[in-house]
Amino acid sequence: MVLKVDWLNKSFGKKRILKDISFELNTGEILTIIGPSGAGKTTLLRCINGLEKSDRGTIFIDNAYLCRDYNDKNIYARSREMKEIRQKIGMVFQNYNLFPHMTVMENIIEAPIHVLGLSRDEAVNRAYELLESLGLEDKTDSYPFQLSGGQKQRVAIARALCLNPKILCLDEPTSALDPELRGGIASIIENLASKGMAILIITHDMDFAKRVATRVIFMEDGRIIKEGEKEEFFNSFKDDRIRKFMVL
């Protein structure tokens, strides 16, 4: 188990966004969280990668607590531990958030050099290997605006992987892709999982979830409604809300 979320709660003002969320993620697993917009999927992901702070509950990442309840308070890791925990989570944003003024290579090596303390040569070698594995070795000196959507996404994946994370999170990885590119990102994800990476995907693309997931969580209105291994999940159409969502 590389990620464990336990009784996580989060409100914005009076609105409860996450209600008692609990789940686990293991190495080599591809967990997709599906659900309608407004279900709290993105907030959940933002709590896990530390961009939002939860109000209550536990997030446990690779033997360290990002946050936990103590004496009726939600305690967060100190900033040094936080930095270490962050390195274990790679994040691929929906719109990638590449740095537009940096080349592909500079985008990828910035954090390994300044956060991990790698030498420039080490970082470049590591980045080049990643780019090669993603079929982008000829794009090292391109700027993000010169890349297609799919290429930008792969750069964002390389940037996240270059910090050697244990978990890779992807927010709506297919939303900005042409349909014919979805197979490509799916095989990249499957390949990473087969090497032991734990993968957490947020999507409302059901076909994509069906294709890549090993396990599926359905969220609605801040709660986990259903969770199951892929076969089991998609074969049981008993739950009306899920069926409604899947037909949509």
């Binding site: 990668n49 530390g50 961009l51 930095k83 962050r86 390195q87 989570i89 994040m91 944003f93 958030n97 590449l98 740095f99 910035e110 954090a111 300044h114 956060v115 940037r159 910090l163």
Partner: peptide, 8 residues
């Protein structure tokens, strides 16, 4: 946010 999750 990208810089933050990268730990910069």
């Amino acid at each position: 946010e990208a810089a933050k999750v990268l730990g910069l």
